Simulated assay, not measured.
Amino acid sequence: MPETANNDGKTRRDIVLLSTADWSHPCWTNKQYVGRELAAAGHRVLYVESLGLRQPSLREGRDMRRIFRRLMRMFRPMVKVNEHLYVYTPFVIPLHRYALVRRINRGLFNLSLRLIMRVLRMDADLLWTYNPITTATTDLQRFKTVVYHCVDNIAAMPGLPKETIEQREPELIRNADAIFTSAPALQDKCAALNSNTHYFHNVAEFEHFNQATRVDLPVAEPLRDIQGVIVGFVGALSDYKVDFNIIAGIAAARPDWTIYLLGQLGESILCRDDSALRQHDNIVLHGPVDYAELPSYLKRFDVVLLPMLINEYTKSVFPMKFFEYLAAGKPLVSTRLPAITEYRHLVRLADDAKGFVAAIEDILRNNCPPRAGIEEAQKHSYPARTQAMMEIVAQTQGER
């Protein structure tokens, strides 16, 4: 049955979650967290990995390695994560800009999805999608309820099929039974086409990141011998999102500070020029670290950064790092991202490297207490947000 009630009286549903990220990606985003929380609430979740929106480059080693890993997973296309959560790796041709390929992919994907659901004895109850071209790949009419969780302006990302997305996403928005958005600009866009649109900004795993405030937590080994001020950043270093010139400008203005960058440099071909970050000896390009280790790095950071570009993509971004930083008790300096305007009392805002340096120096002089940021971050958790979303879904009657 698609809906069942447990002993606690809560309704359990069969949910197909169409992601735009692989489950095993080292940097989790909304897709993995929501899948995990839905399963933790007792729903049965089939997490469908990325359908390959971006065409891979055969000249990119990272793309080729990802293609190889996906091909290997296709020989074991379904993995059981726990009692309620399964991960499925679909076979698709990542050339969505071509109509013929989209038709082939639609046929292949819907057939394989039916088979997988039959094996799991899942009903076509709830489709929860992050993919803006879902109407091109999936038969919405099969599902009782369709939810579109819009967390990015994906059409503005380089390397993606912009025309296809701009054609298909409005169709998905109009046909979804409920829409959830993560930034005010996304809320405005979706609400104009669907009145059942609800704003839920990004949240954080408070308990995990708040470990950085513990006196007994050891500082990460690579940071123990660094003297002086450490200014830190955590996240993917892609030049369409992050302003490398601001980071380089901070390093140039204060060579006595260490600028410590934790994260993957670029996302495949989406980072074209990182030369600005390699011109200063006090910039450390550490690379990504295991999620479990992040609090031990954050503990040593004196100030953390959100040096984001302001462009068509980032105008629709509420950084996941925002509440993660605050939960860690770290003073934060950011560019003026529209999505964080309501929390500007918790962050220092600056427009360029000079402004960032001035804000950091003021923070260091005044030893700004982190209590307000920690208290605000504690209010915004994945379980609470997911529960609120599912309450809306429960009130939504699909007409598929």
Rank of each mutant, 00 (worst) to 15 (best):
N194D: 02
S238T: 15
S296R: 09
E391I: 09
V347E: 00
T341W: 01
P370C: 02
C27L: 14
T134Y: 01
S112P: 02
D239S: 09
A204H: 04
V393N: 00
A236T: 15
V79R: 15
K379Q: 15
R336G: 10
A327Q: 05
V303A: 00
A384Y: 06
I15D: 01
N367D: 14
E293L: 13
Y98G: 00
P184Q: 02
R102E: 02
C150L: 11
L120T: 10
E205F: 08
R69C: 10
M117Q: 15
P331T: 08
W28Y: 11
Y297R: 03
D274C: 07
I363C: 06
W128V: 07
F356R: 04
C27F: 13
T134C: 13
N153F: 08
A252I: 00
V48P: 00
F209T: 00
V79G: 03
L305I: 07
Y382A: 00
K354H: 12
S112N: 14
P90F: 05
N30K: 10
V219K: 02
S195L: 12
R106Q: 11
D362V: 02
A5H: 14
R36M: 12
A253Y: 03
I363R: 06
S381D: 01
I67L: 15
G232R: 01
D239W: 04
L270F: 10
I67M: 11
D14V: 10
D352L: 09
T396D: 00
A39N: 07
A39C: 06
I173A: 02
Q187I: 03
R365H: 11
E293F: 04
N245T: 13
N311Q: 08
R66M: 13
R12N: 12
I104H: 02
Q279Y: 05
R54I: 09
F301N: 01
Y325T: 03
Y343W: 14
M320Q: 10
L111D: 13
